[in-house]
Design a protein around this nucleic acid. Structure first.
Lengths: 246, 246
DNA sequence: AAAACTTTAATTGTCTGACAATACTTTTTC
DNA sequence: GAAAAAGTATTGTCAGACAATTAAAGTTTT
């Protein structure tokens, strides 16, 4: 057997790693211009095509951006919370779907983390967060809302809650957990009754956050988790033994 | 004004997005082989070099892997928790360092999330987790341990705690928060006294987890956060007005 | 002198075609 | 039948070319 796990990676990978290290270590700082592709190919003694593949790898991770023209080139990117969010969400979604993570496990992780934010959010939330939560609750109560729109609104509601903690790092970390759940949630059909149960809980949570009662908000989230889990369980059971014709 | 934010991205970006969508949507499943580079260049009507740059982008995100040889080609990758961990940690570290996130903010996020894991970990941890925590505590008490080794051991301790919750999604999400703190923690010099305070708290936490007392473990983590924050504050203050020569 | 236009140069984006390296498959040889 | 050799499909890398883009320098016009 020789599926050598330590075989030397190809040239673009090596070059990309070398440049990435320079960025992580601080040798290259934000907005600094890298040498041109031609110069890099001389430096690393490879062809320009090889350098380009390396740069594309870095661009895929938003570590650099490129610009054409006379003063163009590759520049070190300031990684924004926004871009990091987006990437983390994609990765999280694929991670869950490819590794057969159960709804239960993902749901537990999500609500566990979210409960942790509740006390901070109760303390620091401002009127905008409250307003967003109220608006989404309103929307979720509307008749004729599609299941997908209901889920999307659910995500928005919870993002507002998390953002209320006013800690960008926390918001960033939670984004993956909350949004990666959406594809799983979309598998669920929400009956009028289950929607109303969820909306009621959302209202409780929003009330608690507005009253700056973190403990009550946590409890509300715990109740919501239980509700969601049992809803999912019912639906999955039903699908396993479908249409037991009377 | 036309700093068009919606300008069409370049060809490799488009092609990469197209293939990524196929993966995310499930049209391409894990371990499935993509068409060869030559076939792709026909399909997308671009040169092979362009296709290659697109594939490199996807490889950078571990969405595909490539293999040479007759039966080689590009294959859809199963994203492992391990690979996702590693990527998230890199992103988190850069995010914190490039956006001037304060120690305080990052620390708060980390401990908030970690506290959330404590009850689950207290319930589900097994002897291996306890053993790991005890070993790291032992190590942290040793004389002559470098600050970096102390920090690394700290990370290992906390990872054991989080892993005790036995929820891979939770472990994955926490990895970013815990490990991205390490570069920040490394800026701190740990005196013998501060080390001993931390070790004492670690022991309290480990005891609580072993006793399956989630609430006590949470309290321990809260105390640890306060200790860490005040330690950092003292050090940063001291550095701002250095050497007030007696 | 200022403004508008043109030219120039640097740089990335894309293409073509070639050859090397690799690894599986088939054929040949013993 | 097993081992060795040849064949073949595929990615990895290279060289060179031209197109597209953009800022700066130069030129003309007002």
């Amino acid at each position: 057997m020789k599926s050598n796990p330590e075989l030397p990676p190809d040239l673009p990978t090596q070059i990309a790693a070398s440049i990435r290290d320079a960025i992580v270590s601080g040798a290259l700082i934000v907005d600094e211009r890298l040498p041109s592709e031609a110069e890099l190919s001389l430096q690393f003694d490879v062809s320009r095509a090889t350098v380009r593949e390396a740069l594309k790898r870095l661009a895929a991770q938003s570590l650099i951006r490129t610009q054409r023209g006379a003063t163009g080139g590759a520049f070190v990117n300031r990684i924004s919370f926004e871009a990091a969010h987006a990437q983390q969400i994609t990765t999280s979604i694929l991670l869950l779907s490819m590794n057969d993570v159960s709804f239960e496990t993902a749901c537990e992780a999500r609500y566990t983390l979210e409960r942790a934010c509740a006390p901070l959010s109760a303390k620091r939330r401002n009127s905008i967060h409250i307003k967003m939560m109220r608006e989404e609750i309103e929307l979720q109560g509307e008749e004729g809302l599609s299941d997908e729109a209901f889920c999307a609104s659910d995500v928005t509601f919870h993002r507002a809650l998390v953002d209320g903690a006013n800690n960008p790092v926390l918001s960033y970390q939670l984004a993956g957990a909350v949004e990666a759940m959406q594809p799983l949630m979309n598998m669920i059909t929400f009956t009028a009754r289950s929607r109303s149960a969820i909306v009621t809980l959302h209202r409780d949570i929003a009330d608690a956050i507005e009253a700056q009662d973190g403990a009550r908000a946590s409890d509300g989230l715990a109740a919501l988790e239980i509700e969601t889990q049992s809803l999912a369980r019912r639906i999955f059971e039903q699908r396993q033994r479908p249409s037991p014709k009377t």
